[in-house]
Amino acid sequence: MIKIDLRLFVTLAKYLPKNSGSFEIPEQTTVEMLILDLGIPLELVKLIFVNGKRQDRNYPLKHNDRLGLFPPVGGG
């Protein structure tokens, strides 16, 4: 198992698990697998950031990664 720091923004926040700051996941978990495991509809996630850089859903998460998931924000 590895640990990541998981942040879910705006309407995704309701899917935030306990211990999200040090969340345990199996090695080789991709961002997409994690999104599905958390029960988040895939289409709600528009932006994926890992350690301050945009990544796609196939990114394999690594120990100590800081992951942020963002829905579409479009208000003015």
């Binding site: 705006v10 309407t11 528009k46 579409p72 924000v73 479009g74």
Partner: peptide
């Protein structure tokens, strides 16, 4: 929650933030 970016003519811009342009995507979670 807010976001700001500066988009220059050569950039992919919004596609990097909202994904590919689609008709269904008019409003966000606001």
């Amino acid at each position: 929650t807010g976001q700001v970016t500066s988009i220059f003519p050569e950039d992919l811009g919004y596609e990097l933030i909202y994904g590919k342009k689609s008709r269904e995507q008019s409003k966000g979670v606001e």
